[in-house]
Nucleic acid binder design. Structure first.
Lengths: 251, 251
DNA sequence: GCTTGACCTTGCCGCAACGTCAACGTCTTC
DNA sequence: GAAGACGTTGACGTTGCGGCAAGGTCAAGC
């Protein structure tokens, strides 16, 4: 057989056959006078085994090991390992699909540009009562960011507290008022008297459970500095004071 | 923020961040005087979104599309498509694991070196009554090879017929006798009288349902030629005569 | 004898999403 | 002033081939 005949017989491409030669999976056959490879039945048998093994999901390196370790002893081991690996992959896919389904079901109108974690998306979609002021948008950005940055436990804490707050109309109204106060500081100076007012309002917005680790906050953290740099000076000052207020009150 | 601070904040590597820059997923920030990249909060937000999207399983090209098409309109489409893709992958894995399980359960003593398709493996494992003569081994090789080479319908036909035959002790005994006859031809000349005898025995071994397409067989097929080249001359002649016998009898 | 088309040869680039050097500059700290 | 932890660009490695380039070979038809 020439390489093309072998390839169609086994159902692979000639490119694959040459690839297996390169990797040493399939021995190079004799050559004809013109340089063509001349295959025999043994090659077809080996090639068919390679194909079956790769179809099971083995990598070519593992296939080589199996073919080398003559007896099928090692094979069981490899296959068991492969099965475990496939089980892990299956689980991972199932989980991703679960998260996808949450996102797609809450798809009605996500109030944040771009997707958030499925959990947050469900929350935001559930209560679209929040205003769409600049500060509110920024807050949602921050939440979305924090949500990926925080450790798992704190994350769940955050999501559940947020769910509670969003389920409470009074809390939502209070938040919207606070957004308005902060928005008003966009052009103000840092020593504007409204800064203190806004800080007070914001601190009152945040229930004790929502941000328990405020005391441990590193005020020189690089992310925090970048956050301040992204706000108007008076707004940044208001946030700084809010954090101080919270730190004192939580002690 | 510098690149390392950004990376730990979002939970990716600096290498990934630079990779996203290269692909245009994340805009390059300003540089400090020393050439260091200086990131702001906007970058962290975008990077966090990239991470969430890739964790869902989107490719970076798709992430770019989603980020570019400002509104979340296109997103739903992409996610739906992704979900379908994941469903396909999940199915593929489940099927592979199913075949793996058959192989592993029949793992007792596979009489063929290396794994065969799960179905054949189960068959061979189920009835280990077949002799281990050289010709029997070659036959199993051939079956294993054919099994990958044949179209699906013929394949199932083959497996079921084979299952029947292996379940029948008389048929197994007859096959073993025929193997012996063929083995005896290893050193014989093609005009040995035993050739005809072996051909007759082999033809009688093959039930009508097992090889229905024998009439369509291309006797100059490259695989067939390779098969003959792999046998002793008298053995090859016996097979040739068997095929002729079968072709005539089936007409 | 010529062309045409189908086959074969080797070799190298490309993919996805980065990991991992290499070789070097910069900043902080003891 | 030297170490150690950062940053910079650049380039190669991973997996399993696909696809192309730039030819050589062979059988068939004119």
């Amino acid at each position: 057989m020439r390489i093309g005949e072998l390839a169609v017989a086994v159902g692979v491409t000639t490119r694959a056959v040459r690839h297996y030669h390169q990797l040493g999976l399939l021995p190079e056959p004799e050559r004809r006078a013109n340089g063509y490879r001349e295959y025999g039945l043994r090659h077809a048998v080996v090639l068919a085994r390679i194909r079956r093994l790769t179809e099971l999901g083995l990598g070519l390196a593992e296939v080589r090991d199996v073919l080398a370790d003559e007896a099928g002893k090692d094979l069981v081991e490899v296959l068991t390992e492969l099965d475990e690996d496939l089980a892990r992959q299956e689980e991972a896919i199932r989980e991703r699909r679960g998260r996808l389904r949450i996102l797609l079901e809450a798809e009605g109108g996500l109030p944040v540009e771009g997707p958030v974690s499925p959990e947050l998306a469900a929350l935001f979609a559930g209560s679209a009562q929040l205003s769409d002021s600049p500060m509110a948008a920024k807050d949602r950005e921050i939440m979305a960011f924090l949500e990926t940055a925080m450790p798992d436990e704190a994350r769940e804490q955050l999501v559940s507290s947020l769910g509670e707050a969003l389920g409470n109309p009074e809390a939502v109204a209070q938040a919207n008022e606070t957004y308005a106060l902060l928005d008003a500081l966009a052009e103000a100076e840092p020593d504007d008297p409204r800064v203190a007012e806004a800080a007070r309002a914001l601190a009152d917005c945040i229930p004790p459970g929502l941000f328990p680790e405020v005391g441990d906050l590193d005020h020189d953290d690089s992310v925090l500095r970048a956050f301040y740099a992204d706000l108007a000076p008076a707004q940044a000052e208001a946030i700084r004071r809010t954090l101080r207020l919270l730190t004192e009150e939580r002690r």
